[in-house]
Simulated scan of single mutants.
Amino acid sequence: MHKSLVIFYGLILYALAELIWWGVLLVKVQPERKAMIMGEGAVFLILFFTGAYFLQKTLKRERKLHEQQKNFLLSVTHELKSPLASIKLYLQTILKRDLDKSQTRTFLNNSLKDIERLDDLVENMLIATRIENHSYSFPKEKFNFSELVEKVAGRLQIHSCSTQIIKTNVDRDIYITGDKFALTLVVSNLIENAVKYSPPCEEISAGLYQKEGEILFTVADKGIGIRDEEKLRIFEKFYRVGSEDTRKTKGTGLGLYIVKQVLDKHQAQIRVKNNRPTGSIFEVSFSTYGN
Results as ranks from 00 to 15, higher is better:
Tyr239Pro: 07
Phe238Ala: 05
Gln269Phe: 13
Leu254Pro: 03
Ala268Phe: 04
Leu232Glu: 15
Ala268Thr: 03
Ala268Val: 02
Lys248Met: 13
Arg240His: 01
Ala268Trp: 07
Gly255Thr: 04
Lys248Cys: 08
Gly279Met: 00
Tyr239Val: 05
Ile281Arg: 05
Lys231Asp: 12
Lys248Ala: 08
Val262His: 06
Arg276Pro: 10
Tyr257Arg: 05
Gln269Pro: 11
Glu244Trp: 07
Ile258Gly: 11
Arg233Cys: 10
Asp245His: 14
Glu229Ile: 14
Val272Trp: 02
Lys231Val: 13
Lys237Tyr: 07
Val272Arg: 03
Val241Gly: 07
Lys265Ile: 10
Leu256Trp: 02
Gly279Thr: 02
Gln261Gly: 09
Gly253Met: 00
Gly242Asp: 01
Gly253Gln: 01
Ser243Phe: 00
Lys265Arg: 13
Val262Tyr: 09
Gln261Tyr: 12
Arg233Thr: 08
Ala268Asp: 08
Glu230Ile: 06
Lys273Pro: 10
Ser280Pro: 02
Gln261Val: 07
Glu236Trp: 05
Asn275Ser: 15
Lys248Val: 12
Phe235Thr: 04
Gly251His: 04
Lys273Asp: 14
Asp264Ile: 08
Gln261Trp: 10
Leu256Asp: 11
Tyr257Lys: 02
Gly253Glu: 01
His266Asp: 07
Glu236Ala: 06
Gln261Phe: 12
Phe238Glu: 08
Asn275Tyr: 09
Arg233His: 13
Ser243Ile: 02
Arg271Phe: 13
Lys248Ser: 13
Glu244Cys: 09
Ile281Glu: 07
Phe238Lys: 07
Ile234Ser: 06
Val241Leu: 11
Glu236Cys: 10
Val259Cys: 03
Gly279Phe: 00
Arg247Ile: 08
Tyr239Ile: 01
Asp264Pro: 03
Arg240Val: 05
Val241Tyr: 06
Arg276Ser: 14
Ile281Gln: 06
Arg247Cys: 05
Ser280Gly: 03
Val241Lys: 10
Lys237Gly: 09
Asp264Met: 13
Arg271Asn: 12
Phe235Gly: 05
Arg247Ser: 10
Arg233Leu: 14
Pro277Asn: 02
Arg276Cys: 14
Lys231Thr: 14
Ile281Cys: 08
Arg227Met: 14
Gly242Trp: 00
Ile224Tyr: 11
Tyr239Thr: 06
Arg271Trp: 08
Arg240Ala: 05
Ile281His: 01
Gly225Gln: 03
Gly253Val: 00
Val259Lys: 06
Ile281Thr: 11
Leu254Glu: 00
Arg247Val: 02
Gly225Leu: 07
Ile281Leu: 07
Thr249Asp: 13
Asn275Asp: 08
Arg247Asn: 05
Val241Asp: 09
Asn274Ile: 06
Leu232Thr: 15
Val259Trp: 01
Arg276Glu: 15
His266Ala: 04
Glu229Gln: 14
Ile281Pro: 06
Glu229Asn: 15
Ile224Pro: 05
Gln269Thr: 15
Leu254Trp: 00
Arg233Tyr: 10
Lys273Glu: 15
Glu230Asp: 07
Ser280Cys: 04
Gly251Cys: 09
Lys260Met: 12
Gly242Ile: 00
Arg271Ala: 15
Val262Met: 09
Lys273Ala: 13
Gly279Trp: 02
Thr252Met: 03
Gly251Leu: 10
Lys250Thr: 14
Lys273Val: 08
Thr252Gly: 02
Ile226Thr: 09
Tyr239Gly: 01
Leu254Tyr: 01
Asp245Thr: 12
Lys273Ile: 12
Asp228Cys: 08
Tyr257His: 05
Lys273Ser: 13
